[in-house]
Amino acid sequence: MPVLTFWAPIVLIIAFVIVLVVTLLYRSRGQAKFKEGTEQGEVFYSGENVPEELQRHVRSHNMYWGFFEAMKRYYDPTVRAHTGIVNDYLIWLLGLTALAGVVIIVADLL
């Protein structure tokens, strides 16, 4: 069995291990100016006051807000199309059948 065919994860894993070892070695040498227990160890929040611990968590509804706002014209009709009414699901199914039939038959006639 050849190891290198169309895609070899082993190469990537080896590269990852090498990078990891180098990083850990570099990190273990440490930073000379760092002193434990001073404000160097504090959270930096762009100079603002750091919020309470529970306020720091970004909840999921805040994520990608700009993307949804920009894509509003795509999302509004798509979300509305998913009505949740069982009749609509059946209409889509029968409509798909009819469409597929028309396309297949017409394409064969042409």
Binding site: V79, H82, T83, G84, I85, V86, N87
Partner: peptide
């Protein structure tokens, strides 16, 4: 009623 039982949508 099908229109009333649509808790899941979107």
């Amino acid at each position: 009623d099908a229109e009333k039982s649509r808790r899941m949508k979107g």
